[in-house]
Design a protein around this nucleic acid. Structure first.
Lengths: 329, 329
DNA sequence: GTGAAAGCGCTAACAG
DNA sequence: CTGTTAGCGCTTTCAC
């Protein structure tokens, strides 16, 4: 069942059927109703490949995220969907699991014109690859822009977030502040580490490499790192981490050993994931405006879709430091 | 840059270029190499819409899930990707947020031939709609098959899972067992409630409607329900829930009020989400084989893609009841 | 081993 | 307001 079949059943041309489908106003009311009736009766759905081939637009955008395991991306995708929906776009999401092979498999959807644009939240590509990609296709990055690449992106001020949080702990008298970072050497990690070191320096505390760990973002990594650091001659009194699961892992170890988290030892995570409010003790964290990260990413992408030569933009959104029981007892 | 441009640059026909792209063996080695060189030099990527239109295959499947907020789906999607990848499929995921409008917006991808098949994990459609959909397009369901619909699906034996768990609590002497269920009136909910009631009946305990709650699956819902139930004249000594977040919400309330969870009051969740091992106390839960749910769902779909008239299959995978601190102190 | 040509289903320019 | 027609980019017979 295609547009020709429908047109024959209606006794009109395919052009007229196409006009009805695309809500072109210059079709008489009677014709329109007749066509709609036949379409409905036959459950006719236009083949999109035919349309795309003709219009070279798919009204679809691709979102690449490393994993669905990290709830962090959930609200971001909601933001993208919210904004994209208003412009009539479909949003399809793919998972790259941090693997270059999978990223290539799916970026092909952009290159082969199956989607009108792509928002990526973690790329394994080099900055040159990203620059050239973004130069030729609508492509923007969120949260983890490729360092040095010429590409539109939306992020928070990671450096300032950690700087402010660390500074406030120091001002309350803490001297041994640990920071557990990720080990991908990406934008957010570098920024946050810089903020951490800057805070120490500003407050006249000498940076101790033993208090800076690089690891994966999971619960057990936080647990393991904490276990190691608590055996240092001078153990930390504050643990700052690059994710909430890391902070929860840290807390697990501390509580197991009988420490009073939030009183003796402070713990603060990152991302304000849902569990942070319902963990026991309630977890302090640094919050990113996830929904707005999504809507902004879409807006940036849309500019590129409408004009691939529009200027590259780097948008920075505000963060929030949220203190709960794990830092204020 | 299209296949014609490439063919001209190579001095061959488009047919030959197409053969090279599709690894057709009857192309001479020299021709092949010349074509590949030109393709590479020009960064030529075939337009997929042209191909789909011609072949009516997209090598893409659609996965519909209600929300990325629930980590439960993460490993399932990994399983799907793992299996689909072996057959050369791309996996695209969309989020329906339990909204019929969004589900329709995305099911259109299946009907309009943008994907070769669809795996859905939560549908708002009626059983008639699903039956007719599954009859005409490769479409299967996972975890929450539409009740009464003629559609292939993969699930665990939800009824038996809750039956076994509840029975074991009763056999340990518990008489007041609460079950917090979801409020969507879906397959898993009905099965689990049936298992719960069956266990009570088998052990000669009269079902008390005050101990069966229907709510959403979030942390705070567990908290609120627990608060209400603990005010009953005879409060429960066991809380079973339909999700881990619900169980965590329950535990939050109990600990806040000073109860010893795992000693005085037992709590068991559902799905064995990552946090369950790192919550304090460690949370007992009922585990579904998520990766296998994914691979099996893909296999079922693939059968339908290869032959839309292949018989409808209902696959049941094993579950596991995992006891941790919240039920064994 | 290679090319010519038809056609997948659709839209849009043009004509009337 | 409606129809005719070309053509989007690709694959695939059918020839040679």
């Amino acid at each position: 069942m295609n547009i020709i079949d429908i047109s024959k059943l209606c006794g009109v041309s395919t052009a007229t059927v196409s006009r009805v489908i695309n809500k072109d106003p210059r079709v008489s009311k009677e014709t329109r109703q007749k066509v709609l009736k036949v379409i409905d009766e036959n459950d006719y759905i236009p083949n999109k490949s035919g349309r795309y081939l003709r219009t070279s637009r798919s009204n679809k955008i691709l979102v690449m995220i490393p994993t669905f395991l990290n709830q962090f991306y959930s609200v971001i995708v909601e933001g993208i969907e919210y904004q994209a929906d208003k412009k009539g776009y479909q949003v399809v999401v793919v998972m790259t699991m941090l693997q270059k092979r999978l990223e290539e498999k799916y970026i092909d959807m952009l290159k082969s014109k199956q989607v009108d644009g792509c928002i990526n939240f973690f790329s394994t590509f080099s900055s040159d690859e990203i620059s050239s990609l973004a130069n030729r296709y609508p492509y923007v990055q969120g949260c983890e822009p490729t360092i040095g690449a010429k590409v539109s992106s939306v992020v928070i001020d990671n450096r300032d977030a950690v700087f402010k949080a660390a500074s406030s702990f120091i001002q309350k008298g803490h001297k041994r502040i640990a920071y557990i970072s990720g080990n991908y050497y990406k934008f957010s990690e570098q920024s946050r580490e810089a903020g951490y070191k800057q805070a120490l320096e500003n407050e006249g505390i000498i940076f101790d490499p033993a208090l800076l760990a690089k690891t994966e973002y999971r619960f057990k990594d936080g647990y393991n790192i904490c276990e190691a650091m608590m055996q240092l001659p001078q153990a930390p009194t504050v643990f700052m981490t690059a994710s909430d699961p890391l902070a929860i892992g840290v807390t697990n170890f501390l509580i197991e050993k009988g420490y009073k988290v939030g009183k003796e030892i402070m713990v603060i995570g990152f991302d304000n994931s849902d569990i942070s409010k319902f963990f026991i003790p309630k977890l302090s964290t640094i919050s990113q405006p996830r929904f707005e990260l999504g809507t902004t990413a879409f807006d940036l992408l849309n500019e590129k879709i409408e004009n691939i030569n529009s200027p590259v933009k780097k948008t920075i959104l505000p963060f929030k430091i949220i203190h709960r029981e794990s830092t204020i007892g």
